[in-house]
Design a protein around this nucleic acid. Structure first.
Lengths: 192, 192
DNA sequence: GTCTATAAGAAGATAGAC
DNA sequence: GTCTATCTTCTTATAGAC
């Protein structure tokens, strides 16, 4: 069985993506990325001209990844309510990483909001994917567009807060308890 | 009227505190701090031996500041419920800064959680002040210790989520709407 | 495309004069 | 205590051989 050859560019992006998530953007050097990707520092510059370039590429990579995931959810999960609950389920599934490193989407935005304000609007595109997806679900449940959007942002906000506190306290129990509370919030809202 | 002379150490801490909040820890250089504090780079090292030293000093400064604030709240605000609502009110009062830079407490922890894992537990001390304060209020309202602590963390979590999303979208309307929703949550909880 | 070698600059940190 | 001058190390980035 032949494993599909990954392009060097793709290997670099995946290495950098993980390093940025674990150690932060500013704290990650080209040396580290090159080592993790098993290429020389010089070769790196053949694929990416500046450090910002790779950040853009990483955001694109994540957007592509999330888009694929949400498309799959839409196709395989039948009801809007179940899709909303699937979003909440991310907290439990990725709980260990969230405890250790926070939410990949949230921490990237928080960091860029300080060090690279020009790039932050671009990174916000990942939030938009979830926001639009959730808004769609609430709209399909009969809520007017504006209300649907507010509920979508509310859910994302709760999700982000849980990640921040769970990360700060390294508390997986808190995370699971709050995920349950979020599920209950959805149940209450849709019971009316 | 004579203005009280601030110590150089205090001036450095305040300058660094603002720079760390606005631009991030790793992104702030000694040159920037020295410029803002109007001292030479060399003088800086007379007061702080390493960059970590100043981070510890900043956390101490913030802890002192928050401790003073919470003491004042306890003395001037009569009911536990009103004190809890005062916590929520922070969102509205500091909304403009939150939109621009996020929550000072949350973003510091998020950043240290990546770049300086050893320092993060120290910075968590600021969270603990609010956590203990809110736990006290819920306890005084008759909730058992464990439940009181869970509600305290729930409130902090909601507060953090609101800051992250409001910062990401630079949306003050969202922040105010969600602060109102949090107030309602408290009303509902205490109505029972 | 991939490499080695190296440049140019900024960072944190130190030494020592005043 | 405060300054200027300097050191060392690490960073991003480039040049040019293969």
């Amino acid at each position: 069985m032949v494993k599909k050859q990954q392009s060097v560019r793709s290997v670099i992006i995946k290495a950098a993506n993980e390093l940025f998530y674990h150690n932060g953007y500013e704290e990650t050097s080209f040396t580290q990325i090159a080592e993790k990707a098993n290429i020389s520092r010089g070769n790196f510059y053949h694929h990416f001209k500046t450090k910002e370039d790779i950040l853009y590429a990483i955001v694109d990579y994540r957007i592509e990844d999330v888009t694929k995931t949400l498309k799959e959810w839409t196709e395989t999960i039948k009801t809007p309510k179940a899709r909303i609950k699937r979003f909440i389920q991310i907290l439990r599934n990725d709980g260990d990483d969230a405890i250790e490193y926070g939410c990949p989407m949230g921490t990237l935005n928080t960091q860029l909001g300080k060090s690279h304000k020009d790039l932050q609007p671009y990174a916000r595109g990942i939030f938009d994917l979830f926001k639009n997806f959730l808004t769609d679900q609430f709209t399909q449940l009969g809520f007017p567009k504006k209300k649907a959007e507010q509920y979508a942002l509310h859910l994302i906000s709760r999700n982000q807060g849980i990640s921040v506190v769970a990360h700060t306290y390294h508390d997986i129990g808190f995370l699971k308890r709050e995920a349950d509370t979020l599920d209950e919030w959805v149940d209450q809202l849709l019971k009316k």
